[in-house]
Structures are given as C-alpha cells and as structure tokens.
C-alpha cells in the first residue's frame, strides 16, 4: 500500500483549486505555481490535514507519511532527540533511542541528541525536522517548501542530504524555487486554473548540465509558470 494519488475536486469559495486526478510515482515530484493557487492546499489534502477549502474525492496514501513544513515545527521544550521522537510519542509508539540517534546521524547531526532547539542554526533545525520525518520510515513524504527559509548555501546542503536519504520514496514537494525543482524533481508539475500540468525537465542526474543547458531548463520552468 505505497500508492499515492488524489482524485476529485478541491474548491475554495466556489472556484476550483484542483479538479482531476494525479498519481505520484516513486521519486521527487515538485509542485510549483503562483502564490495562492492552492499548492499547499493540494499537499495538505494529500496528507490528510485540514484545509479551509472543501474537498470531494478520494486520496490513496499509506498509513504512515512524513511531513515537513516551511517552519521546522520543533517544540522548544523538547531536546533534539525528543523532537525527533515526538511523532512516535504522539502516536503512542515506543521511541527507540538507537533509531533516533541513527536518524540524527543520517542527517549529519550525530551527538546532537541532548541539545535544545534554541541552540541550533536554521539549517540544523530543518535537519532535525528531516530526521523527525525519517523516523516514520514512511514510504511517502510531503514537503511544503521545507528549504525556503534557508540561505542558499545551507539550502543546497540540506537538499543534498534529503535527496540522499529519501531515495526510493515517493516525495511530493511544493516549492517556489525553480532551481530547487531543477535540482531535485524527477517530475515537475505546475498548478494553475485548477489543473496540474507536466513540465518537461532534462534527464537526471543534472549535475552534469552545462551552464547553457541549466539556464535553458530554468527558463523553460519560468515560461511554464508564466503560461499557466
């Protein structure tokens, strides 16, 4: 039961934010679109989180999902380890300290267990949020602009970590950043006028792209956004 799909109609104040069907395959699917077009709403419906809009239709998603938002959502009164294990605690599952340490190790924060969130940098905090999502060992993850608040250098590092660790999973990420989409996306969708449109991207891996090719690809993404 790793399928991830959404079919139906999401409407807000009489206007369709989305109507149709979308099936998410393994790998990174990035969703772009103008502000207020309903990207976050679409992602929240997919994650089963409450939205202001009305949704009629069906969502297929596994029992456990990973979630990252633009805010790291770290609880200030818990240690880093407590924050990584908070979903288990809320779900009533036993938190294994070894697993917490392993997840922290994986995101490059080995030995940070006893630190408090207010002693961490923005990048480290978002890494803890990534570790918290990893703890779920969920086949599907939904990311709502998780790296938007980071400075460009830190963003690249955390993106790379996330890409390595989430290989083989279904990841749906909302983003505003065309270069982020170009770096991470296996599939790029643009939401506009209630429909998702595919944007063709160069084949992965894209680290070998020349400056010319990268610029062309970014230009195509921007044009697709304009056209939408």
């Amino acid at each position: 039961m790793n399928a991830l799909s959404l079919s139906g109609r999401i409407a807000l104040a009489g206007a369709d934010l989305f109507s149709g069907e979308v099936v998410f395959a393994e790998g990174w699917t990035c969703v772009m679109g103008a502000s207020g077009v309903g990207k976050t709403t679409l992602l929240r419906v997919l994650a089963g989180l409450p939205v202001a809009a009305t949704f009629q239709g069906h969502v297929a998603r596994p029992g456990r999902i990973g979630w990252m938002a633009q805010a790291d959502l770290l609880l200030p009164h818990l240690t880093v380890a407590g924050n990584v294990g908070v979903i288990d605690r809320l779900a009533g599952r036993l938190t294994q300290p070894d697993k917490v340490s392993a997840c922290l190790d994986a995101v490059g924060l080995a030995g940070f267990e006893a630190r408090m969130p207010d002693t961490l940098s923005g990048g480290q905090r978002q890494r803890v949020a990534l570790a918290r999502a990893l703890m779920q060992e969920a086949p599907c993850l939904m990311l709502d602009e998780p790296f938007a608040a980071l400075d460009p250098a830190t963003r690249r590092q955390v993106q790379t970590t996330a890409q390595d660790l989430l290989r083989g999973k279904r990841v749906v990420m909302v983003t505003h950043d065309p270069s982020e989409a170009l770096r991470l996306a296996d599939r790029l969708l643009v939401l506009a006028g209630g429909a998702l449109r595919d944007v063709t991207l160069p084949a992965k891996p894209r680290s070998g792209l020349s400056a010319q090719e990268a610029a062309t690809a970014l230009g195509q993404i921007l044009l697709a956004m304009e056209a939408a």
Partner: peptide, 9 residues
C-alpha cells in the same frame, strides 16, 4: 520528553 542519547547508533 527527553530521549536518552545512545552512543551505539
């Protein structure tokens, strides 16, 4: 709320 850190991850 603290999970004790473990050394053998």
């Amino acid at each position: 709320g603290t999970v004790r850190p473990s050394t053998s991850g």
